[in-house]
């Protein structure tokens, strides 16, 4: 292990500094787009999961318009297909490895859908970057959905009861009572998800996204040194994630200081 890390190797990486710089930009952009796609997807999924859409509702009523006592029709009347679809999506995405998902999206979906081949900023290959963002976004959407859903459900049921008893509709209750209180719980969790995605995005180098990890690979291929570029990558990831999570923790503390409960 005498040559585990050799200081002399670091200068040999210097010619490839540009690759790391570009990799850093790719990683940050990839993570930002992932969170954005994930958030929009998660909002839709959370609304689906919490929706009260019951197309067969009327089957649960008897001829007098009262609820049935039980039986298949009552169960069917409570079936919410939106909730079912969203739950299925979330559970499947959370129960399979993100690597598998990325490979399926890249080799499966985007072999059918042909992407135009061009460069962003002169060094980001769109036809690889885009599938990476889609796959990561779909994955993080499942996790963010659960964050949003639990944030909404963490609000005491008495709040909804009070709002509805005052005559507010379900939508007004969501907008004026539940969301303003839930956002406070949700935002830090979303920011944390961003940090998680920065780290997880390293996996996209398997489909040729030129992020920080792919810079490591390039150096390895050209110079046969591996430990030193890996350490550089480690340092970059750490410098990205550690301050970000500290900043989040700071805002989290500040927000909870004014907590009214």
């Amino acid at each position: 292990m005498s040559n585990f890390i050799q200081w002399a190797n670091f200068p040999k990486i210097l010619p490839y500094a540009q690759l790391f710089k570009q990799g850093l930009v790719v990683t940050v952009l990839l993570s930002l787009f992932t969170v954005m796609i994930g958030f929009v997807l998660a909002l839709i999924l959370a609304v689906m999961r919490l929706s009260n859409f019951r197309p067969f509702r009327s089957l649960g009523l008897d001829k007098d318009g009262h609820l049935r006592d039980g039986g298949f029709l009552l169960a069917l009347s409570k079936f919410n297909p939106l909730d079912f679809l969203a739950t299925a999506y979330v559970e499947i995405l959370r129960s399979t490895p993100v690597l598998v998902q990325i490979l399926i999206i890249y080799y499966g979906v985007f072999s059918v859908i042909k992407l135009p081949s061009f460069m962003i900023f002169g060094f980001i290959k769109f036809e690889r970057f885009f599938p990476g963002v889609v796959a990561m976004g779909m994955n993080s959407g499942a996790y963010l959905c659960e964050i949003i859903r639990s944030g909404l459900q963490s609000i005491d049921g008495g709040q909804t009861e009070a709002a509805r008893s005052l005559g507010l509709t379900q939508t007004q209750n969501m907008r004026y009572i539940i969301l303003p209180q839930a956002i406070k719980n949700i935002l830090p969790a979303i920011a944390n998800e961003f940090v998680v995605i920065i780290k997880e995005s390293a996996i996209t180098y398997t489909i040729g996204v030129q992020d920080i990890m792919s810079a490591v690979n390039a150096v390895k291929g050209a110079t046969f040194i591996i430990m030193e570029p890996l350490l550089v990558a480690t340092a970059i990831y750490f410098c990205l994630c550690f301050p970000t999570s500290k900043v989040i923790a700071y805002f989290e503390r500040r927000m909870s200081r004014g907590d009214k409960r």
Partner: peptide, 9 residues
């Protein structure tokens, strides 16, 4: 309500 259920925000 028993627990008031005022809107805390």
């Amino acid at each position: 309500f028993q627990h008031f259920n005022l809107f805390p925000h």
